[in-house]
Write a protein that binds this DNA or RNA. Structure first.
Lengths: 144, 144
DNA sequence: ATTACTGCAAAAGATTTGCACTAGG
DNA sequence: CCTAGTGCAAATCTTTTGCAGTAAT
């Protein structure tokens, strides 16, 4: 079962209908290193489903976020809202120059969550951990 | 020197002019447990400076973010973009029910930053660490 | 005295809403 | 069959832009 299939099964379990548009959105969301914005998803999928409406993209993204299946990363630099389909705790590392985002697994992240719920009595539902800076490539470009 | 004064001195150092509006914005940003949105800042300060324009708020916030003096937290639940004036690494803990946000200092956060720059060659410029869930008060309200 | 900042009005985006049509279950 | 989802158009809301007047340095 692919990661996209996992998202789709979650949708189905929540009583939502599985349309080709939603399958395409889930597939794109779970493709390698994808942290797309609504607009990027729209442009990509439009190539395959020219009739796709931006509204459907928002509709599906909102439902996925509502169900806690995907996460909102927020704005990276001057861009728009990015989404992240990987829901296990991890760090997002964004380059403010080229706007690339990579995921980093980290042991410390798990410690954080325990630390918080233990000390504050909060019931943790999710997290959004973002570091931003310059990736190695962009550092080279600037110094050269 | 108050925290607000610190923000203001940073502005001055960056060659920006110190206007009463900016002082008011910096003061509000650094008031206890403040993680306001642009709209909240506008409404608050308007009480004191009725002539304040929302544009000035955006103008100042954008410059502060640009200079790396404050941080954008992004959207919390269905709200708008929240800002955070506390720039030393820490965790933001947001309640998705009452939209309150608290800051938590954490040792693990420092480990994270070192871990990332060491392993990936990124030059880290800032971070945005947000956990969301239910605060103790809201947990009680729901269960009762 | 300069030159940046303010605040108005209007524009530009992004996201949401209303509604008839289509298609998944 | 029946209801949820789609996609269009238009509305809404946040944020940006242009510009004349104002004020900080």
């Amino acid at each position: 079962m692919t990661t996209a299939d996992f998202l789709i099964s979650q949708l189905k379990r929540a009583g939502m209908r599985i349309t080709p548009q939603r399958v395409a959105i889930c597939t794109l969301l779970t493709s390698k290193d994808a942290h797309p914005t609504a607009a990027i998803i729209y442009e990509e999928i439009k190539k395959v489903y020219p009739s796709l409406s931006l509204m459907t993209v928002y509709n599906t993204l909102n439902k996925l976020v509502e169900l806690g299946i995907i996460n909102t990363l927020g704005h990276i630099g001057d861009d728009n809202v990015h989404y992240d389909a990987h829901n296990e705790p991890h760090i997002n590392l964004a380059c403010i120059s080229c706007h690339k985002i990579i995921d980093i697994p980290s042991e410390h992240v798990n410690h954080l969550e325990m630390e918080i719920s233990a000390s504050r009595g909060y019931k943790i539902l999710g997290s959004r951990i973002l570091y931003y800076g310059l990736c190695p490539d962009c550092q080279n470009q600037i110094s050269s």
